[in-house]
Design a protein around this nucleic acid. Structure first.
Lengths: 161, 161
DNA sequence: ACATTCATGTAAGTAGTTACATGATTCT
DNA sequence: AGAATCATGTAACTACTTACATGAATGT
């Protein structure tokens, strides 16, 4: 909402589109969250449209709270990492299956790097802040998957006979 | 449990120790999960000890299910990334605050790389599968934070005047 | 004797998912 | 007329967190 007013329906598309890889959310959660935002005064219904459409706008208090969160807080707890949890448990399967697992991690990382490169090409990077930060986020993804690819190749060589 | 029988109390220490950075879990969740595991026959109480201690052991069916999960399934949905979500929203604050944010990401990545190097030194890597896979997981962490550090430095230079 | 550690569990609440339910407008 | 899209919402459930509650054994 800080980048512009939107309805729940609009936000569903954003969360299933450009934000899907960063912060996925379901339709149901988006609508209930908008309700809470309006109740606590962080957002408000700016306009009503066709078919019951409700366009939400961030309030002054909501923008203040967003800025406070951005500059004053940091992620508190470690993110869960299912891929690494599996690595920890690889001792429960045969060496061959462990090799297969690491090969698969590598292949999926390879595919992700290619996909992000294609996404970068096809995206119409307009002007403005969201384009700058969108590119920066995309670069993180590219580096992340490239790192995974190299690591998986290295890890495979560490497995004992 | 696949690496050896353990009580809820033992597992709390594992989840707050070596698994804390990969799959954090609370005491309360561990106990209720052990209850569910026993109810569904994936684990069982192997022995009772002092002070009400209950030592759980994985069953044949539990080990089969673990192996099935490891070789047949893959993480289905994208992991949420709070650090990147913040990057997407950096357009809501001043350039200086965005620079500060990226400098902080870099500093924390730097600290994490140093901490993991120290952890590697002080850990007694015995023999066996858990040592091999523990080291591989640690290497992932080191590469991950090194990547973050380089990326944050690069990102800072991308910000417009 | 007192503090610490070992050890288990429950209650209340928040966050999030899946599935269901409904209806208006627009396109072909 | 019928299909697709736009648009919102709720119910039931699973996952997870925080806080509370209890007591036995061990160390000083």
């Amino acid at each position: 909402l800080a980048y512009g007013s939107a309805s729940g329906y609009d936000l569903v598309r954003v969360f299933h589109g450009s934000l899907a890889a960063v912060w996925p959310a379901t339709q149901s959660q988006i609508y209930s969250e908008l309700g809470k935002l309006a109740e606590t005064g962080l957002a408000e219904v700016a306009a009503q449209g066709m078919r019951g459409r409700k366009e939400y706008r961030v309030t002054e208090s909501g923008l203040t709270e967003l800025r406070r969160w951005l500059v004053e807080t940091r992620p508190e707890k470690a993110q869960r990492n299912e891929m690494l949890l599996r690595v920890f448990l690889l001792g429960a399967v045969t060496r061959e299956q462990a090799v297969d697992y690491l090969a698969d991690v590598r292949a999926r990382a390879e595919a992700a790097v290619a996909e992000l490169a294609a996404l970068e090409q096809r995206t119409d990077w307009g002007e403005g802040a969201s384009a700058v930060y969108g590119r920066i986020a995309l670069e993180w993804g590219t580096r992340f998957y490239a790192m995974n690819r190299e690591w998986a190749a290295w890890a495979r060589k560490q497995l004992p006979q």
